[in-house]
Design a protein around this nucleic acid. Structure first.
Lengths: 130, 130
DNA sequence: TCGTTCGTTCCAGTAAACTGGAAGGTTCAG
DNA sequence: CTGAACCTTCCAGTTTACTGGAACGAACGA
């Protein structure tokens, strides 16, 4: 299968697939006599896995680590377990931060409705002193 | 005041302050005969405002826009009101996305505890089929 | 005078995940 | 034979907010 077909089947672009190869997420495939990449259908699953892992919030670097472990013949599950916990903590922390930001913004929005723009002194009374 | 003192008073670095100047967030200050930046104490407030706006989740670009309006003599509050609403929506959407990711991860973590690593088939049964 | 610490400029790099474009080769239909 | 639709490589840019480093000048205390 040529790169275009793989791209279509996996819902990506040829650019991205070459990028993944560059980033060692995909092995360098066979080449046709013309020099075109000639993929085994297996890579479709591999790319699907990459997408799954991305949806779970892993970076490509982490996905690469998991894939490396698997390619080495080991079961990556223990490592994945660590990553899941790490990532879960990061996500929870980030949610907390964002909720904080949201509360700040909601307060600003309230002030915006109450304030006469003409009263805006200093840099901006909406934002200041928050 | 020299750049180091400003940095210390505002809790930043000299690097960052030069970067802000480059990014048009701070006006180019006077120079001493030796070519050192010689700031008016006013910039301390300006930098504090930048920090406030960042805490509310605005990008430096947006802060720059607000500052530009103010520097032009207009009251930026109307514009700020728009930005606040925009940003509030973005933040809420992002929180929703992250909560989704968190739920996925929590499910993965549960699976991790239940699964025997030896059963890991395919790419990784923890992540797959999520 | 020496050393330290402050300041200056400019260039380059970081993370993340691509994306765009140039300049060219290949394959196939009409 | 021509044109399109595919493929190739390589280089550079996108976004955000800085950060690091080189190579240098200035101010000041001992």
């Amino acid at each position: 299968m040529l790169i275009g077909e793989i791209a279509q089947r996996t819902g990506t672009t040829t650019k991205t697939l070459r990028f993944y190869e560059d980033a060692k997420l995909l092995p360098a495939p066979q080449r046709t006599p013309a020099g075109y990449r000639d993929y085994s259908p297996d890579v479709v699953d591999r790319i699907a896995f990459i997408h799954d892992a991305q949806k779970a919030g892993f970076t490509l670097r982490q996905v690469g680590q998991i894939l490396d472990i698997r390619d080495g013949g080991e079961s990556p599950c223990v490592h994945v377990g660590h990553l899941v916990h790490q990532r879960l903590e990061e996500v929870e922390q980030r949610i907390t931060e964002l909720e904080h930001t949201r509360d700040r913004l909601a307060a600003l929005a309230r002030r915006t409705r109450e304030l006469d723009p003409a009263d805006c002194g200093g840099y901006c009374t909406i934002i200041e002193a928050t």
